[in-house]
Amino acid sequence: MMSDTIELQFTLNGLPKTIAVRSSAMLAEVLRDDLGLLGTKISCNEGECGACTVLIDGRTANSCIVLAAEVDGCEVLTIEGLAAGGELHPIQTAFIEEGAVHCGYCTPGMILSTKALLDRNHDPDSAEVRKALEGNLCRCTGYNRILKAVSRAAGKLRAPSPVAGE
């Protein structure tokens, strides 16, 4: 327990994962440097900007200030896990359709915060969307398109099946 490495067993994007890491490593570093999942971005590195957002047991977290040791026994979802199987998730499609991706650095975090919101609330109002995304900063300031994309994604996820000809 007191050694400098720590062994983690957790579920990563739906698959079991066992990995030994430095005990002081942050989750974002392990995802990017040890596991090669570069979709999780590190920007402010102090829990303010949300670029490193991942879902831990279905809830958003800033992976830059979560010790990797914390996710032992947990389920972690990164942006790579959303399009598992090669098909984009409806939230990702909605972001593309609304032109909500500008430089793209905030996008993985925005999309995962959106997923956490829509998983618990299928029809959020504008205030609820803004509150859910308050921890995700976009410095290209494309917020209007992002808000539209969230609304579009909510509609897609509520629809029983894809509408032909849409």
Binding site: T53, T60, A61, N62, A116
Partner: peptide, 9 residues
Amino acid sequence: IGSEQIRNR
């Protein structure tokens, strides 16, 4: 407090 990400942790 903070943001949703902060309140979740």
